[in-house]
């Protein structure tokens, strides 16, 4: 498998010819990045195409699938419907920055692994970011509540029953170690 672990992000050449470039300092996973971009750049595209953080996925680019879910100041939001300029001065957390330590796994990541809560894996980063927030919001209390409050993350492989089980496992661990 290790042949396909992510390549190091290539340095981005400064793109010539775009008008009205704005300068934004973006705080992602605790690190500041200074970007000069077209104001039309969404947070999702900034992460994927400018910072090489491709864990957040583009599934619809219009707020209908949840694959791009990330945290802004701890709240789960859709990065495809957020302009990069709108999050200046805020703390952005992506799937790459979720684990408490380098090389470790967040309890939610471990729970998804344990319960096979995905198949193709494409919606998974968004599911996990959403699930972590769902528990923190105190909304993951019953199975029905988990289902309802996780309904903004489509899984076309339909791993839903396993996702619910994973969240219950992680919830217990997250509640022990807030």
């Amino acid at each position: 498998m290790d042949t396909f672990s992510p390549l190091k992000a290539a340095p981005l050449s400064r793109r010539a010819g775009t008008r009205d470039t704005i300068e934004v300092v973006l705080n992602v996973n605790g690190r500041n990045h200074r970007l000069a971009v077209d104001p039309r750049v969404t947070l999702l595209d900034a992460l994927r195409e400018h910072l090489g953080l491709t864990g957040s996925k583009k599934g619809c680019d219009q707020g209908q699938c949840g694959a791009c879910t990330i945290h802004v100041d701890g709240r789960r939001v859709l990065s495809c419907l957020t302009l990069v300029a709108m999050v200046e001065g805020k703390a952005v957390t992506t799937i790459e920055g979720l684990a408490p330590e380098e090389g470790g796994l967040h309890p939610m990541q471990q729970a998804f692994l344990d319960h096979d809560a995905f198949q193709c894996g494409y919606c998974t980063p968004g599911q996990i970011m959403s699930a972590v927030a769902c528990v923190r919001e105190g909304l993951a209390t019953t199975d029905d509540d988990i289902r309802e409050y996780m309904s903004g993350n489509l899984c076309r492989c339909a791993a839903y029953p396993n996702i619910v089980e994973a969240i219950k496992q992680a919830r217990a661990e997250m509640e022990e170690q807030p």
Binding site: M1, L53, I95, E96, F112, F118
Partner: peptide, 11 residues
């Protein structure tokens, strides 16, 4: 699975 839950699986 580990690559998929960490966002490092390369599509």
């Amino acid at each position: 699975g580990r690559l998929k839950v960490t966002g490092t699986a390369c599509y």
